[in-house]
Amino acid sequence: MSFSIEHIQQVAHLARLALGPEQAAHYARQLSDILEMVGQLARADTQGVEPMAHPLEMHQRLRPDVVTETDRREVFQALAPAVENGLYIVPKVIE
């Protein structure tokens, strides 16, 4: 597997990362190396093997439907880059 610059830019767009042309070329090389290493997986015989998403075979525990949280807007919004009238502000979104 070898990454083209174009493909790197597509992936970077999906991940919302701004990459300059030099960076993209650098990453293309490194990611190709990494995927070559990862390519060893193809060797494994996984016929009939169940994919494993969690280390432990447990089931989801449920939370009682109770309100436990109080309003902490002031504390949380002190962390925000831009806030107005209690709202988080971003550049205009066009639908």
Binding site: V38, L41, A44, T46, V49
Partner: peptide, 11 residues
């Protein structure tokens, strides 16, 4: 990739 890796993880 992902599904395959999950299976190898099981192995």
């Amino acid at each position: 990739y992902y599904l395959k890796a999950q299976k190898v993880r099981k192995l």
